[in-house]
């Protein structure tokens, strides 16, 4: 009979991932590579927003994209058409990416020399909020058809993000989405969050967002 004993661990469940994420962030800082973790529900417009963002910035900086949509490489092809470096990550059915998977993705992408890398996370508002990927900034998209009460249902996601893009504002007339109510709810959870209403389709509002992003890259590389 073996001698079993009780061994104390006393570690938070996310401690290990948080440590790996901090190491990755420090590494990316050394490399002057700003990693953005882009999150939303499926269909909110992550890929469409990526394409318009890349088209606005690709002439002034080197951009890379990591696609983590489950079991599909449609999105990677869409991005590849913009001429940007892109890799499709296979998450094996997982509902989020952790720091270790992100690090492997960056290696696969060949991220040296990039100024900006955008990770399109798995479409989901719960799990990605709890796993730090090592990104410098978290950005989420809420689209008009989803409703202005989403912040009430997914408070953690809205609290951890630096930027909220409210997408599909071209469709505002068809839905009873109250932009002011949504903004107030989000600011209550997270007073420092930047909110940009955009239409990835028509390009409306996109410039304010890409201006912010340009500034974030500059701050990351110069501070």
């Amino acid at each position: 009979m073996k001698n079993f004993k009780i061994l104390e661990i006393k570690e938070g469940i996310f401690d290990n991932n948080n440590k790996e994420a901090d190491l990755l962030r420090a590494e990316l800082k050394q490399q002057n590579n700003l990693l953005i973790n882009l999150m939303s529900s499926p269909g909110s417009g992550k890929t469409t927003t990526l394409v318009s963002t890349i088209n606005a910035l690709k002439d002034e900086m080197k951009i890379g994209v990591m696609e983590a949509d489950i079991d599909s490489d449609v999105d990677a092809h869409t991005i590849a058409n913009t001429g940007t470096k892109v890799i499709q990550l296979h998450t094996g059915g997982m509902c989020h990416l952790d720091a270790e998977m992100t690090k492997q993705g960056l290696e696969g992408l060949g991220s040296e020399g990039l100024d900006l890398t955008i990770l399109e996370n798995v479409g989901n508002l719960v799990c990605p909020a709890e796993f730090d990927t090592g990104a410098a900034k978290n950005v989420m998209i809420l689209s008009v058809p989803e409703g202005d009460d989403k912040p009430l249902k997914y408070p953690l996601m809205f609290s951890i993000c630096d930027v909220l893009l409210i997408n599909k504002i071209d469709a505002m007339g068809f839905f009873d989405f109250d932009l002011e109510a949504a903004t107030t709810r989000v600011k209550k959870l997270n007073p420092n969050i930047k909110v940009f209403p955009i239409s990835a389709k028509t390009g409306e509002g996109v410039e304010a967002w890409t201006n912010w992003l340009r500034g974030a890259v500059k701050d990351w590389q110069e501070s």
């Binding site: 073996k2 001698n3 079993f4 004993k5 009780i6 061994l7 104390e8 661990i9 006393k10 570690e11 938070g12 469940i13």
Partner: peptide, 8 residues
């Protein structure tokens, strides 16, 4: 959190 394991 993970409190402990019973192990050998």
């Amino acid at each position: 959190s993970i409190k402990e394991v019973i192990a050998c």
